[in-house]
């Protein structure tokens, strides 16, 4: 089998990278990190997969069509949280309206988690989209370059 060490290493590392992305995503309230960083770490796992197994294999696991849907969902998730707080009687993105009367600002926690999730989904799918489109174009190698 070709590049056996690379393949095995990628397979071992893939799940922990995703897990780390989720940790960074949901731990943003308590430590450094948040949606932007988590989205990129999530995308990096798939980029590693594409480098090792080829882009076509990665596109089978995570098709471009799904990424476009995820881009839109992420952005609408963020904006929708803002609209939801308005419908609940607060300002746009005024998260306290989510849990009114909370003594420890539980609404802020929920609101931040929701919008960070939207950011993470948008960033991850957009970065992967850009990566797919750049590396999906194969340069035609000249005869002398072989």
């Amino acid at each position: 089998m070709e590049r056996a060490i690379l393949r095995v290493t990628t397979k071992i590392f893939f799940a922990p990278i995703i897990l780390y992305a989720l940790y960074v995503q949901f731990h943003g309230d308590y430590g450094p990190g948040g949606g932007f960083q988590a989205g990129i770490i999530f995308a990096v796992a798939f980029i590693l997969h594409a480098f090792c197994f080829g882009l076509e294999e990665t596109k089978k696991a995570l098709p471009q069509r799904a990424l476009i849907v995820a881009m839109v969902i992420g952005l609408l998730f963020y904006a929708g949280t803002g609209v939801a707080t308005m419908l609940l009687g607060g300002n746009l993105l005024g998260y306290d309206a989510i849990v009114p009367g909370s003594t420890h600002h539980a609404g802020q926690h929920y609101g931040i988690l929701l919008v960070e999730w939207g950011v993470g989904v948008t960033v991850a799918s957009t970065m992967l989209t850009i990566f797919y489109h750049f590396t999906g174009r194969e340069p035609d190698i000249d005869q002398e370059d072989w």
Partner: peptide, 21 residues
């Protein structure tokens, strides 16, 4: 106001949530 330990996240996602949008 926000009661989250990381002030950067509080500013980014709550105080300036509209910027981040």
């Amino acid at each position: 106001d926000i009661a989250v330990p990381n002030i950067v996240t509080a500013v980014l996602a709550s105080y300036r949530g509209f910027d981040t949008l």
